[in-house]
Structures are given as C-alpha cells and as structure tokens.
Amino acid sequence: MNIEVIMAAYNNPETMALVLDGYLRQGDSEFSLCIADDGSDGRIRKLVDDYCEKGLSLRYIWQEDDGFRKARVVNEAIATSSAEYLILTDNDCIPAVHFVRDHKRWARPGQFVAGRRVDTKLSLARRLLARETPISRLDSFGFLVWQAVAGGLKRAEIALRPPERLAEMWARRPMALLGANIGVWREDILAINGFDTQFQGYGGEEVDLEWRLKAYGLRSRPARGRACLYHIYHPERTVTDTARVMLEQKRQKGRYVTPYGIFSLEMEEEVQSKNAT
C-alpha cells in the first residue's frame, strides 16, 4: 500500500521538529510526507529542507497567509498526491513509533479510520520541547502510566497497545472523527471532493467531512489502542458559531459532494448533478 501522511502546518517550528523526529523513528518507513502549509514564514520551509537531508521523504505545499484556510491547502495536497492511502494530521501531534504501521493494518476498503490522540499537559509539553524528556520515553508503558497518574497526560489509555483482538473489540464503539488523525483512501476523499473550503476559521471542516464520507457510503473504523498521536499542549480553541450554522445548513441540503472542494467552482453544476443521481 502506497501511503502519504499529509500534515497541516502553520508556524510552530519547535513543536514541528519534535513531530518530524517522530516520523524519522517510525517502525515502518515505507511512507512519504507532505507538509500542507497555511502561510507560515520561512522557518517551516527551512525545517522541511533540514529533515529531507535527515532522510524523510518530504514534499512541501505553501499558500499565502490569509486567515485560517486549512481546508484549502490540505485539498491541494490531496489533489497532488500519488498515494493510494492518506493519513491526515497536524504539525503539533507527535506520532507513536507504530503510527504508520498501525494505519496500514487498520485500513479496510469501504471504511475510513478515526484515530485518536493523547493530550500532553503543559508540564510534560515543556519538558518535551526543551528536549529534557526524549520522545522515546513515550514508548514506555510505565512512563505513560506514571504520567497519567502525575497529571502529565490526558487520555493516556489511548496509547496503551492491547492485543490486536482486544483492540478490534475496543474499536466497535463509535467514535467521532478527529482532524488530527484520519486515515482515508484517496479515491474515497476525491469522490466527495475533499474538504469544503467554505469553512474558514477554526473548526467545522472535519465534522463536515465525516458526515459526507458516511453519506457517500463509507463506515467509520475507530482506532483505539492503535495509531496513536501525542498532542503538544496549547490553549484549547472552540468551533465558531458561524461554522456550526454552516454545518447545519449543509446537512439540510444533503449534498455529500461539495462544490467548494478540490474541483474548481466552474464544475459546480456537474458536481450537483452527481449528487442528484
């Protein structure tokens, strides 16, 4: 299976360096990375060049900074990818050492993968960023339990790797899609025209994507105990009221192929015709 990780990025080079270190140490190195940059300054491009020299297979897409337009730049990355299977994530989430391998094993035709992340609290995030605690410590069962008890991690159980049969049973419980950890066949996300670029500003685009993938006929496959990410702490953001209103309006229209996605707006009539059949 040909896999590409598409990582949405916006500045934050110190955290992103930790994230790229996580991809350097993957147990399965048969993947490529695309950095989908929503208008960062030159530090992110330099980081990409540095990690290319370290051995990561990287390509880079940049768009001008004009507010939060993650959906647009990720769509460009999807459109230009040559991979069969895509893992969508963010540049503040460190992958566990089995992250890519787990996504490969979890992928099924007719399904998309809803992964999860462990949240680091401020104290542990500071130690990771200062390199006082190496990211390899996140591989340790004992360290995870200790940090969960000490208050350094939230939802640490997501990172524990039960036997595969137990993980399969755990995965039967429904779980909402999280934008930082999505696995999807490229042909499936192209079929619904990618993310809806009308969502500008934080939040909404992943929820919209999930209901459209389901309306297209796909099933969600939760990944608990597998394909884990470690989210580096930052103050929590909330979905805007505008995004909530847009979500409801779009659901009422019932179009799972958005006219505001990867295809150009000139194709809107053709897209709408597909929805009607």
Rank of each mutant, 00 (worst) to 15 (best):
V97E: 03
D41K: 13
P222D: 08
I192W: 01
E132D: 14
V271A: 07
L144H: 02
H103P: 03
S57P: 07
A125L: 02
D208Q: 09
C93W: 00
E269T: 10
T120L: 06
A36I: 06
Y23W: 07
R72T: 08
A8R: 00
F99K: 00
R186M: 12
R186L: 10
D41P: 06
Y260H: 10
N91I: 07
W170A: 04
Y256M: 09
I135Q: 02
Y60K: 06
A148I: 02
L138I: 06
D50M: 09
D119K: 06
Y10K: 02
R161G: 04
Q63R: 15
D49L: 13
Y216D: 05
V73F: 06
T277W: 13
G203L: 12
A227S: 11
A71I: 06
E187Q: 11
D65T: 12
E164P: 02
N181S: 09
T277F: 13
F141G: 04
Y85F: 10
I94L: 05
R116W: 04
R69Y: 10
D38K: 05
R226Y: 12
T240F: 15
D139E: 11
M267R: 12
E4G: 00
Q198I: 09
I158D: 00
D196F: 07
V149H: 15
I78D: 00
R244Y: 15
K154T: 08
S136F: 08
R127I: 08
V245Q: 14
R255S: 08
L190V: 14
R212I: 03
G194F: 03
K253T: 13
Y51G: 01
R255G: 09
W146F: 15
A130M: 10
Y51P: 02
C228H: 06
R72L: 15
Y216N: 07
L129Q: 07
S29H: 12
G152V: 04
V245W: 15
D241C: 15
R219K: 13
D41I: 13
A223F: 03
R212M: 05
G194A: 13
G254T: 06
L177R: 01
E4L: 02
P13V: 11
G151L: 07
P13K: 05
Y51D: 02
E236W: 15
Y85A: 03
R161P: 01
L124A: 05
N12D: 12
V257A: 05
F31N: 04
G55Q: 09
A159H: 00
F195N: 03
